[in-house]
């Protein structure tokens, strides 16, 4: 399979006073189009950093990241913003919704920056939030809020979905619902979905598992027979 995402010798260095700290240390990996990828690793391994670099929220110290043939490490600020707007959908552990906008408005605000969006109502329908359209985020449960955040991410119709511990703040039942929703995004809609998680069991559901440790790729596991999330033995 032709690689859709390619990390080439990527380094990310943080300066802490006089010391330097390599959060991402010479990483190489590739991800194919439409893959459902799980990134695993202990705390501090550099998972979030990798995801942020890929999402254009942070810049590398050295190395190149190719997304669909485009080198995002050489983009200007403006181009990166455009890249985030059109190509990437983010889902965070803490949802990051705008509290003063309703569910519907939180999703619809994307229209301000992306021209070819999906239909608001059908996206809300697909994440099962139709009845909560006019509520504010603070009036929803955590799982519902995370679904809003997913709806907002897919509303753009992005090719790439980046999820940083999307179930970190949810109970496991709700987590399964969210994760299978994300798996469907890849399976049914053919998006590339990358999920950062602590939960090693999710590996069974992934096409590819990237294990990080101390800023390095420890292991890449290919899974030829991924099983649906809701059939994983939690």
């Amino acid at each position: 399979m032709k690689s859709y995402i390619e990390f080439k010798k990527v380094n990310k260095e943080y300066k802490l006073g006089k010391n330097r700290f390599l959060a991402v240390n010479n990483i190489d990996f590739t991800i194919g189009k439409g893959e459902f990828v799980v990134v695993l690793g202990p705390s501090g391994a550099g998972k979030s950093t990798v995801l942020n670099l890929l999402g254009g929220m942070d810049t590398v110290t050295s190395g190149t990241i190719l997304v669909d043939g485009k080198d995002i490490t050489s983009c200007s600020d403006r181009e990166l913003t455009d890249y985030r707007a059109t190509d990437v959908g983010f889902i965070f552990q803490f949802y990051n919704l705008i509290p003063s906008l309703t569910v519907r408005e939180n999703v619809a605000l994307v229209k301000e920056i992306v021209k070819s969006t999906l239909d608001v109502e059908s996206v809300l329908e697909s994440v099962g939030l139709n009845d909560h359209r006019f509520q504010f985020p603070t009036q929803l449960s955590g799982g519902e809020q995370q679904r809003v955040s997913i709806a907002r991410a897919i509303f753009k119709n992005p090719k790439l979905l980046l999820c940083d511990e999307p179930t970190g703040a949810l109970d496991s039942d709700t987590g399964v619902v969210i994760l299978s929703l994300l798996q469907d995004m890849s399976r049914i809609e053919g998006r590339t979905v990358i999920i950062v998680t602590h939960n090693a069991i999710l590996a069974e559901a992934a096409d590819k598992v990237i294990k990080l440790k101390n800023g390095k790729v420890q292991e890449v596991i290919f899974n030829n027979n991924p099983i649906p999330v809701n059939e994983v033995n939690w």
Binding site: R78, T81, D82, R84, N96, L97, I98, I113, R152
Partner: peptide, 16 residues
């Protein structure tokens, strides 16, 4: 600031 950061992540341009 959190909301603005979110918008920035979503891809809102500086001028916007």
């Amino acid at each position: 600031i959190r909301e603005l950061a979110t918008l920035k992540v979503l891809g809102f341009q500086y001028t916007k």
